[in-house]
């Protein structure tokens, strides 16, 4: 089994390496995409500066905590989009019949498909995330925890994309579900978890699991709790298992197509 995982990992690394090479063909575009994403995220912080000038505490969060929250939101988004950009357009891969190429290869179809393209601007998000971490004061344990939570949160982001994209196996026009779920995950991730109460809070820990992507990790970075961290890791494993199950369940309904397709 470990040999299999090693082989899969080799393919993902190669695929990512070649995808980076493709994006680097136009270096100016590559660098400006990364730079402007960092700038875009920084501009979002301005509204919080204004708010904190009026109030020193928002839903129990200080300004430093907001920076950490933004870092976590951008990092999880960046991780998922940088390595697995195609997961966020899985719907079109399914409808266009683009899974054919991966289905005839002796590798994991889902992994091969979603790692075939990188999100260049997402690299900007990842860099932004670590800038935020530095601004809030970095220690080695905090750095390691932050990185771990970027991975767990990124996996949950990825899982939601795979689940919503997999609806296309059943309903052909489900790209709207894919887009909406992606937007919802981003929108809720950039607010302090404490402002959401009651049913909304329940939804944010279930259907739109932003709670496990930013709220809980930020909470853990501020007040560490081993039990909660283990729950967080278990939840991310649960989500990716569910997403994988749904994808392979749907794959039996895959109908391919005869569209002319080039791998560009």
């Amino acid at each position: 089994m470990f040999r299999e995982i090693k082989k899969e990992f080799k393919i993902i690394s190669l695929s990512t390496y070649y995808a980076i090479q493709r994006e680097m063909l136009n270096k100016a575009s590559f660098l400006s995409n990364v730079f402007f994403m960092i700038l875009n995220n920084l501009s979002m912080i301005i509204q919080w500066i204004v708010l904190f000038n009026l109030k020193s505490n928002i839903a129990g969060f200080e300004f430093k905590d907001i920076l950490l929250m933004w870092g976590m939101a951008a990092g999880t988004y960046g991780f998922a989009h940088f390595l697995f950009e195609k997961a966020f357009s899985l719907s079109s891969l399914i409808v266009d019949g683009s899974l054919d190429n991966y289905l005839v290869q002796p590798k994991n179809v889902l992994l091969s498909a979603i790692s075939s393209q990188i999100g260049v601007s997402a690299l900007g998000d990842l860099i932004f995330a670590y800038i935020m971490l530095i601004l809030t004061g970095v220690t080695l344990p905090k750095f390691l925890l932050f990185t771990l939570f970027i991975v767990t949160g990124g996996i949950i982001n990825l899982s939601i994309a795979i689940i919503s994209g997999s609806f296309s196996f059943w309903f052909k026009n489900s790209d709207i579900i894919e887009e909406t779920s992606s937007h919802l995950m981003i929108s809720f991730a950039t607010y302090p978890g404490g402002i959401f109460k009651g049913i909304v809070r329940v939804i944010l820990y279930t259907f739109i699991p932003v709670g496990f992507v930013t709220f809980l990790p930020v909470e853990l970075l501020l007040n560490f709790d081993l039990k909660l961290m283990l729950i967080l890791i278990a939840v991310s494993i649960l989500f990716i298992t569910l997403a994988t199950f749904m994808f392979y369940r749907g794959l039996r309904r895959y109908s391919s197509s005869n569209l002319m397709i080039a791998r560009i």
Partner: peptide, 16 residues
């Protein structure tokens, strides 16, 4: 054990 070539679909990375 098998190889496939679909004339309408390209498997190669075009930038490589």
């Amino acid at each position: 054990e098998i190889g496939t070539v679909f004339g309408q679909k390209e498997q190669l990375w075009t930038h490589l």
